[in-house]
Design a protein around this nucleic acid. Structure first.
Lengths: 189, 189
DNA sequence: GTCCTTATATATCATTCTGCTATATGTTAT
DNA sequence: ATAACATATAGCAGAATGATATATAAGGAC
């Protein structure tokens, strides 16, 4: 069984496509997983070193167009650890969604401020969805059917979010930014 | 402008409902925001102390049914900081979704292993949605219309995920666990 | 040809947050 | 009685971010 973290396994997974440098791994992540599981340089380089110490990867310095880089390659041991992780029961999704937190305290905002926050957020979601769509040509060219599948999932997810918040905006606008309180049990009559 | 973190503001937000202890704040979070923005005791207690040092909250020890607890209360300064944060442009959502990562490397799994991973994941999603539904009575009773709204959002979101993965499972089963590769440009003919 | 910007490539570090462990006491069920 | 559970807080190792720093190569502007 693998007790590596998810990020450690993403890096192994990227190396399953062939030898890569830390910088190249970050590029793969940016173009594919970053929006559902990101990793920063501050994780990637130390993890590569740790992987090498554990014998999960090996490395060599190469000169590519007159520029040094350290290419990492997965070992058999590394592939076994990666594959073992692939078979484990997946961890539950975790989300950090600030807009949802704000919604929780929305009663503290003035009606027009509520509308403004939602409008701004819908704009953010639209921009992000556009960014996803710009990856599509890359996935068509570089990725396999599963990588294209994930992009499709992302676009569906953001469509769902845009639609949900647009509907909320409509409701808010209908009631001048003040959602009608469904009466509680004790308040009826 | 507020330069507190989101978790620091969640804690202020909880105190906007009235004086609470660290333990009680965790309970509020568990029953409402935890699935879209969680905070652990290891964050909550130190943040409360930091907030007090900065004058955003004040505290007093009280005895509740013969048991000590430290009740924290928001100050004017704290409310101003919280409200300023509420008006700021919300941060983009971040997601950590291990199942999506695995999907990225799904080509490395055997067909029947793919089907098993998806089946297990759908089961996880169903269980989690049930947990959300169990919060509903609490939200009906304790929350305002916005808190109920978020629960509604969560249920819609998990419905979307269950539906999306169920459809993928169907496709996989149709093709014996092996999604047909859409031919790349260079591979046609 | 030099200047500026962008891309490649890696390293370091304070800060944030989690999840685990530990401790202590009150309450409820058996 | 006593075991299990709920309340209440503290501390810490480890993971990850995001910001800064450094250096070199490539490409375009003028």
């Amino acid at each position: 069984m693998s007790n590596n973290t998810t990020v450690e396994n993403i890096i192994l997974g990227c190396l399953s496509f062939g030898p890569r440098s830390g910088y190249e791994i970050k590029k793969i992540i940016n173009m594919s997983s970053s929006w559902f599981y990101n990793a920063s340089y501050g994780s990637i380089y130390p993890i590569l070193k740790k992987h090498e110490e554990k014998g999960l990867v090996s490395s060599e310095e190469v000169i590519d167009n007159g520029r040094y880089k350290r290419l990492y390659q997965m070992t058999d041991k590394g592939y076994k650890a990666f594959h073992a992780w692939m078979l484990q029961s997946p961890k539950l999704m975790t989300v950090k969604y600030e807009m949802a937190v704000k919604l929780m305290f929305f009663a503290k905002l003035a009606p027009e401020q509520r509308i403004q926050q939602i409008e701004e957020h819908i704009e953010q979601l639209r921009l992000f969805k556009q960014e996803l769509e710009e990856i599509e040509p890359w996935a068509e060219h570089e990725g396999d059917s599963y990588q294209r599948l994930i992009l499709d999932w992302g676009e569906n997810l953001y469509d769902f979010l845009i639609q949900w918040f647009s509907q909320l905006l409509n409701e808010l606008q209908k009631y001048d930014g003040d959602l009608p309180q469904k009466p509680k049990d004790g308040q009826q009559l």
